[in-house]
Simulated assay, not measured.
Amino acid sequence: MMIHSRPEMIHTHQTAPTQFVEANGIRFAYRRFGKPGGVPLVFNQHFTGTIDHWDPGVTDGLAATREVILFNNAGISNSSGEVPTTFEEMGANAIAFLNALGLKQVDVLGFSIGGFVAQEITLQAPELVRRLVLVGTGPRGGQNMATLTPEAQQIFGATYKVPEEIWLKVHFTDSEASQAAGREFLKRFLRRTENRDPEVNEKVAPAQIEAIGKWGVQREGSYEYLKTILQPTLVINGDNDVIIYSINSWILQQNIPNAQLIIYPDANHGSQYQYPERFVGHVSMFLSE
Score class of each variant (00 low, 15 high):
Pro84Asp: 06
Trp54Ile: 02
Lys203Met: 15
Met145Lys: 06
Leu98Gly: 12
Thr85Ser: 13
Leu226Cys: 03
Glu210Arg: 04
Gln208Val: 14
Phe279Ile: 10
Gly34Arg: 00
Ala16Asp: 03
Ile256Leu: 05
Leu190Trp: 12
Ala180Lys: 14
Pro126Phe: 04
Glu67Thr: 03
Pro7Val: 01
Val117Ile: 09
Asp52Cys: 01
Glu127Trp: 11
Gln179Leu: 10
Met2Val: 15
Leu62Tyr: 06
Pro206Ala: 11
Leu101Val: 05
Thr86Asn: 12
Met2Gly: 10
Asn78Gln: 14
Ala100Lys: 01
Lys203Ala: 15
Ala96Lys: 01
Pro206Met: 10
Met1His: 12
Glu289Cys: 09
Leu148Lys: 06
Leu109Asn: 05
Tyr273Lys: 12
Val129Lys: 04
Met1Asn: 14
Thr50Pro: 02
Glu220Asn: 14
Asn248Ile: 00
Thr12Met: 08
Arg130His: 09
Tyr160Met: 12
Gln119Met: 06
Val217Cys: 09
Ala74Leu: 11
Val235Pro: 01
Gln218Trp: 07
Val133Trp: 03
Arg32Tyr: 08
Ser288Thr: 12
Phe116Glu: 03
Leu109Ser: 06
Asn268Met: 08
Phe28Asp: 00
Gln119Val: 03
Phe185Ile: 06
Gly75Asn: 08
Gln274Phe: 11
Ser175Arg: 10
Leu148Trp: 11
Gly34Phe: 00
Trp215Lys: 05
Gln124Thr: 02
Glu165Ile: 07
Pro265Thr: 02
Ala96Gly: 09
Pro56Phe: 09
Thr147Gly: 08
Pro7Cys: 04
Gln143Asn: 13
Glu277Cys: 14
Met145Glu: 06
Glu199Trp: 13
Met285Phe: 13
Ile155Cys: 07
Thr59Met: 14
Ser178Leu: 05
Val200Ala: 11
Gln105Pro: 01
Ala152Tyr: 07
Gly25Phe: 05
Ala23Val: 02
Ile155Thr: 10
His4Ala: 15
Tyr225Gln: 03
Gln179Asn: 06
His269Ala: 04
Gly25Pro: 04
Phe116Tyr: 08
Arg131Trp: 00
Ile51Glu: 06
Asn201Tyr: 07
Gln254Gly: 00
Phe172Ile: 04
Gly49Ser: 12
Gln274Thr: 04
Val42Cys: 02
Thr173Ile: 03
